[in-house]
Amino acid sequence: MQEHEERKQRRLDARSLRGLAHPLRMQLLDALRHHGPATASQLAERLGESSGATSYHLRQLAEHGFVEDAPERGKGRERWWQAVDQSIRYDSTDFEDASPEVRGLTEVFMQEGAARHGRELAAWLATRDRWSQTWSSASDMSDATVRLTPDLAAELIGKMHALIDDYRGRVPDKDTPKSEQVRIHTHLFPIETD
């Protein structure tokens, strides 16, 4: 098994949140992370947007360090983009004393993330009959309710992330038979019980 490349993670701060908290920018970044380098025109076609809009928002993402040129792909005037980091870490404690503007951007970021999770799950449900029975049996859509303190909730989140990280790199490359990229969504939040 070959050594897996360390997946770079970026922790959001107020400045980077200003550059990312826009639905199209978040979709562009996700597309580059999941599908690899692309041009603004290719991304426009994939996302159903104009190439002018994707080009503008890619430049904004680049200004904030989320994407960069993929020069080994470019030919002539064709500009290819690639994601800089493979994941984003949002820590709400970093924004406790944030300005109203930054709190608004946080809301955009969180709502778009939740919408993306919903779109991905809906896409799976709509296409699950195209996958083998083995993959259908290996998928999961479950929920659980437990009573925790904030400390125990943070501990559980840490353990879930560590478990997921333990599975990174176990499959050496995309040519491994029966291997596919999988999406894992975790959500942990308190609920009203009255």
Rank of each mutant, 00 (worst) to 15 (best):
A98Q: 03
E107V: 09
E96I: 12
F66H: 01
R128S: 13
E68S: 13
A115E: 12
E78V: 15
E68W: 05
V67L: 09
A114F: 06
V102G: 05
T127D: 15
Y90G: 00
A122G: 05
T127Y: 08
L121S: 02
H64K: 10
A126V: 02
R73I: 09
V102W: 11
D94I: 03
R119I: 05
R116Q: 12
Q111N: 14
V84Q: 11
R77H: 08
M110D: 09
D91S: 02
D97N: 12
E120G: 06
W81M: 12
G65L: 03
S87T: 00
R77I: 02
R89V: 07
S99A: 13
A98S: 14
A115W: 12
A70P: 04
F66T: 02
D85C: 04
V108F: 13
R89N: 11
H64Q: 09
V84F: 01
E101V: 06
A123L: 10
R128F: 02
E96L: 13
L105P: 02
W124E: 06
D91Q: 11
E107L: 14
D91V: 07
T127P: 00
R119F: 05
Y90E: 02
W81K: 10
R79Q: 14
E96V: 15
L105K: 10
W80R: 07
S87R: 14
T106L: 14
P100E: 11
